[in-house]
């Protein structure tokens, strides 16, 4: 509660960047809160100009824009101010770019189209993380990420099993700034999932639904039924018993290129 009060005093500055005015407006409306000061920019150039003046806390930018693209905007801002949170809005064709942009320092991405709630969950999670980073001490230290995992930073991990099989789970950091998880919804067996797309949805105590991006494409061979029974395993043993799915991934090597090795 103390934190919130402090935030009251300084309004969070958010910049929405999209070359389509309607999208911009919609996004602004979706996230407008009293504590947020939301501005709009219709191009990357304009966004950079505005950021110089106002020094935004969070930039939500479309990936594909004429002129300076979302990724260029991300890198330009991050060079001077690495603390800025950048969320990329992406269309389906650029989802690989989005996955890779996480490597470049984007907090997360959100594929079009999305609901206001989905965006709000993401924004709130982003601010929580930013806030969390500021807190020196944690109640429990983050468990060490075992070696040999491939990470979609802040989201999921992937472990290569025997040929073309891979196990997928959620990294500990994802849960760090979330309230208690109340529900998990996994994509059923035999369905095909694609890298960067949803492979699971988790709901926290606040009712926010968070989409979990799959680190690789493949056909779901097995789902972890245990976590549906004991949902706490997700946070307790994120790299062990808390795994989500096992997939058969024919293009595993290619998918791994977009990930970061632990």
């Amino acid at each position: 509660m103390m934190e919130e009060r402090m935030e009251d005093m300084v309004k969070r500055k958010i910049l929405v960047v999209d070359d389509e005015i309607n999208v911009c407006k919609s996004i602004r409306q979706a996230i407008t809160k009293e504590e947020y000061d939301v501005d709009m920019a219709l191009s990357g150039e304009e966004a950079l100009q505005m950021d110089k003046e106002k020094l935004y806390d969070l930039v939500i930018t479309d990936l594909m824009m004429p002129g300076i693209s979302g990724v260029e905007l991300l890198t330009s801002i991050k060079i001077n101010r690495p603390e800025v949170i950048v969320i990329l809005v992406t269309g389906y064709p650029t989802i690989k770019t989005a996955v890779q942009s996480v490597k470049l320092g984007a907090f997360d991405y959100i594929p079009k189209p999305f609901t206001p709630d989905e965006l709000r969950s993401l924004v709130s999670r982003a601010f929580r993380e930013a806030a969390g980073k500021g807190i020196e001490t944690e109640k429990t230290p983050s468990p060490v990420i075992p070696e040999g995992l491939y990470l979609m930073r802040g989201h999921t991990w992937l472990r290569k099993e025997e040929e073309h099989m891979a196990t997928i789970g959620i990294v500990y950091d994802f849960f760090k700034n979330l309230e208690r998880i109340t529900r998990i919804e996994l994509t059923p067996e035999n369905k095909t999932i694609i890298q960067g797309e949803v492979c699971a949805r988790i709901t926290d105590a606040e009712g926010h639904i968070h989409r979990i991006w799959s680190p690789a494409s493949g056909r779901i061979a097995r789902i972890n039924k245990t976590i549906e029974e004991d949902i706490n395993l997700l946070k307790k043993d994120p790299y062990g018993r808390g795994w989500l799915l096992q997939i058969v991934a024919p293009e595993l090597e290619k998918d791994i290129e977009g990930l970061v090795a632990s």
């Binding site: 999208v23 919609s26 079009k112 189209p113």
Partner: peptide
Amino acid sequence: NNPLTSILIN
């Protein structure tokens, strides 16, 4: 995708 985004949000 862009109009869909606007429609969905609104």
